[in-house]
Design a binder for these strands. Structure first.
Length: 825
DNA sequence: TACAGTGCTTTTTTT
DNA sequence: AAGCACTGTA
């Protein structure tokens, strides 16, 4: 075993060896939080605590996986596999899978993602004859979700005066009713949405004493990462689970609380100290991640927030470079600047692609970045946005699988009942739903008893065929693993073939996606089976059996009297389709991307929480965007935006660029934004300001205005101002002369002083030479820098870079793909 | 019933 | 810009 206490500082050591009683670790950014958590788990186990008795809740699946691996590494054995580590949602889903029947759900309950949930809400709204333009499913969903996260059920929602006032004011008084119907519909469908995974688990603990005591006894040590981002539902669950042993350790940083929109509240940190006596508090204030310059800026920025736990981050790291604050004309120019700078940094400082992250406030900002990176041939990967599992073809495929496992899943059923087209159209579906509602049975049941409802012969036959097919699939579940079932379904339904026959580019892509889905199911089956192998060898014992007498096989709510666990099922073990589906919805797309792959990472700041990168670009620092226009109405909202800014700054280890554009596209229209107010908060002594009028690539302007580089265009005539700056004087003071506009185009800014260049006037007949054979010693003429001599060649064949010593302007690195050089000799 | 074309809306962040 | 719902046509 590694001497794990070595290499910890005093505070970290304190946090690790304090194992009994409530502990709160206030961990500043980059203070070695993960290290402390993993070491603490290893320490617990080294002290003889059984891994089965340790529960660790993380914010992402990725963090859970990493934690497991690191504990394993420290201990040098595989005991860590037995730890209960995962996200709140996945851990609770797993437990609920074995306990769901106690609260009336089938053990194969479906997990609805946000799209499914909204779809159900929409159905409910329409059935209530409400206008779904006014009662927008997404608005209603958010409202319900907030309620759930605060442990407010439909009944309480209806009776809460304050909540009702809010809904009245928004002229949406029916939300309480929708909430009620929605909850009932989900229950009837045997489905839980994301929030249900929390509140149903809470309900289980509250209403089933055996379950409460079982898990209280089991989880002797509880650890919670990213505690500042927990919501009241999670708080209450922890409180219940930890009540027996009170060995609850929470780790968080109030300065990084950025999920209040999801119901998270910093109150939980204060409440924690009130709820337990003698909370041991440890502050980790030494930062090991960033340079002094970066950290100083971060500290000053966050100091603008009022309420916070007092702490001061410091570091022994070097000063590092100043931060670069860069303004560009457009969002496209911003993208170009970022791509150019990455290219330049790779060559100059030998960085790899994976050393860079481009972080932004909204997913929509990725597009401009993507285009530039693609044009430069820089490999990148985008996190977030539409995940793989949200693609239509994937959801369709999975809907079949869901229906097979849980025939009450009405969302899945409606999705595929006529896909591929089989003559069960909208009219028929509507009728089925109506019958189902009238008789309070599931839509599936209506289908199985279709002959009772007087459908036309043709329709009846179509329904019959459909039911027969689904039943035949379902009969496979007991003997076949998830992969085999999926392959069979793909073949029999013709959905794969249909996509295969679509020879359009999108069709091809969709076909490939279904193949990828099948591959990933295969991978999951193999992985899971492997882990089972270890069970058989006695290293690991699966699931809850360890603690209680074996439970009675649960009544399957699926198909006509499903038999209890058979030998075959036991042999099949954990690789069932049901088990597969249970985890699939909870996967983030970050989970199946390799973080070590050598590509530039693009993601929102939210998604970057907990990560670190050598070089970071914080993009889009503009009013309306960051801080978001929607979050500037209250101090609380604004402070959360500022914390978000703090988070992005503290992701950087070595270098940080902060960029913003004068104009950018929004909903297909150009909008003009002021620089972000947060830029005012950057202390000048740590920041270099500059202007990138299109970066190095001013020969190939791809900017939306066409013709010439941004810089060139700027030199053109300026017309009338037509912008609506509200704080002109201040803006000028900060950022130089005001943006101006010519008549037809948006305003341009005058750049702050650039590095001095002695202007060179090229000859009238200047013609760029072919520079593919350029070599050291060549004399050249550059359009702007004048005459010089090539002193060094580097870069790759398709992106050569020459270092030229100019007579008047000194040494410059010239990217030959973009610059025009005339070879003189 | 199925598809094609048209107009309309888009809330920041996510399990 | 783009996706979606709705309308009209075959």
């Amino acid at each position: 075993m590694i001497d794990y206490l070595k290499g910890l500082n005093e505070r970290q050591k304190e946090a690790v060896i304090t194992i009994d009683g409530p502990l709160m670790i206030v961990a500043g950014a980059g203070s070695g939080k993960t290290k402390v958590l993993t070491t603490r788990i290893a320490h617990l186990m080294a002290q003889g605590v059984d891994a089965f008795n340790i529960l660790a809740l993380t914010f992402t699946n990725k963090a859970a996986k990493e934690m497991k691996e690191r504990v394993e590494h420290i201990l040098g054995n595989h005991e860590a596999r037995n730890l209960y580590i995962g996200t709140f949602h996945s851990v609770f889903a797993r437990i609920l899978r074995s306990e769901a029947t106690k609260i009336g759900y089938p053990s194969n309950f479906t997990i609805y993602d946000t799209d499914d949930a909204k779809s159900v809400i929409k159905t409910v709204i329409n059935e209530m004859n409400l206008d779904d333009k006014h009662y927008k499913p997404s608005t209603v969903y958010n409202r319900i979700s907030s309620a759930k996260n605060a442990l407010v059920n439909a009944e309480e929602y209806k009776n809460d005066w304050h909540i009702q006032q809010e809904d009245m004011r928004a002229n949406r008084p029916a939300i309480a009713q929708i909430y009620d119907s929605y909850a009932k519909r989900c229950f009837k469908n045997g489905a839980m949405d994301f929030d249900d995974l929390l509140i149903k688990f809470y309900e289980l603990l509250k209403t089933v004493p055996e379950s409460l005591s079982k898990y209280q006894r089991r989880f002797k040590y509880i650890m919670i990462d990213e505690y500042q981002d927990t919501n009241p539902a999670q708080y209450e669950i922890i409180k219940l689970l930890g009540a027996m042993h009170e060995n609850v350790c929470v780790v968080g940083d109030d300065a990084q609380s950025i999920y209040s929109f999801r119901g998270a509240t910093i109150e939980n940190i204060l409440q924690f100290q009130k709820d337990y006596d003698n909370v041991h508090v440890v502050k980790l204030e030494q930062n090991y991640r960033s340079t002094k310059n970066i950290l100083n800026v971060a500290n000053e920025v966050i100091a603008n927030n009022k309420g916070q736990i007092e702490k001061t981050l410091f570091t022994d790291n070097g000063d590092g470079e100043k931060l670069k604050l860069v303004r560009t004309l457009t969002d496209n120019d911003e993208g170009k600047f970022v791509a150019d700078t990455i290219q330049e940094q790779k060559l100059r400082n030998h960085y790899r692609n994976k050393d860079f992250a481009i972080l932004y406030r909204t997913n929509a900002q990725s597009r401009a970045m993507e285009e530039s990176l693609r044009r430069m041939g820089i490999p990148y990967i985008i996190y977030g946005g539409i995940s793989f599992y949200q693609r239509k073809e994937i959801k369709d495929f999975i809907a079949y699988l869901r229906l097979i496992v849980n025939p009450r899943d009405e969302e899945a059923l409606k999705r595929i009942i006529n896909y591929p087209v089989r003559g069960i159209g909208k009219t028929t579906v509507d009728k089925c739903v109506l019958f189902a509602n009238e008789q309070n049975i599931s839509m599936w049941e209506v289908l199985t008893r279709a002959q009772e409802y007087g459908f036309k012969a043709g329709t009846l036959e179509a329904i019959d065929n459909f039911v027969t097919m689904i039943r035949s699939f379902a009969s496979m579940l007991q003997k076949n693993n998830a992969y085999d079932v999926a392959v069979h379904v793909g073949k029999q339904t013709n959905i794969v073939k249909e996509l295969f026959n679509d020879k359009s580019t999108e069709g091809l892509q969709r076909y490939e996606n279904t193949q990828e889905l099948l591959n990933s199911i295969k991978e999951w089956v193999d992985d899971t089976a492997n882990r089972q192998q270890i069970d058989d060898d006695g290293v690991m014992i699966e699931e809850e059996k360890l603690f209680d007498e074996p439970e009675k096989p649960q009544q399957e709510l699926s198909f006509d009297a499903a038999p209890a666990q058979t030998e075959e099922q036991k042999k099949l073990g954990a690789v069932t389709l049901g088990a597969y589906l249970q985890q699939i919805t909870l996967l983030t797309d970050a989970d199946d991307k390799d973080p070590d792959a050598d590509n530039v990472k693009l993601m929102t700041i939210h998604a970057a929480k907990g990560l670190e990168f050598e070089c970071v670009f914080a993009a889009g620092l503009e009013e309306q965007l960051f801080p978001s226009a929607l979050s500037i109405n209250t101090r609380e909202e604004l402070e959360e935006e500022r914390r978000l800014f703090y988070v992005v700054i503290t992701r950087a280890k070595k270098k940080l660029w902060i960029t913003y554009a004068n104009t950018r596209y929004k909903f297909g229209q150009i909008v003009q934004n002021e620089p972000s107010r947060f830029l005012d908060e950057l202390p000048e002594q740590y920041v270099d300001k500059s202007y990138a009028g299109g970066g190095l690539r001013n020969q190939s302007s791809g900017s939306s205005f066409g013709g010439g580089s941004a810089f060139d265009r700027m030199k053109g005539g300026f017309g009338n101002r037509n912008n609506d700056y509200t704080d002109v004087a201040n803006a000028e003071k900060r950022y130089g002369a005001p943006p101006k506009a010519n008549t037809s185009k948006p305003s341009y800014a005058t750049p702050p002083a650039r590095p001095q260049t002695v202007e060179h006037k090229p000859a009238a007949d200047f013609v760029a030479s072919d520079t593919s054979n350029l070599e050291v010693g060549n004399k050249v003429e550059h359009q702007k820098f004048g005459f010089g001599e090539v002193i060094k060649m580097e870069g790759s064949a398709h992106n050569p870079i020459a270092t030229v010593k100019f007579e008047l302007n000194g040494e410059k690195k010239i990217m030959l793909n973009y610059a025009k050089l005339r070879i003189v000799n």
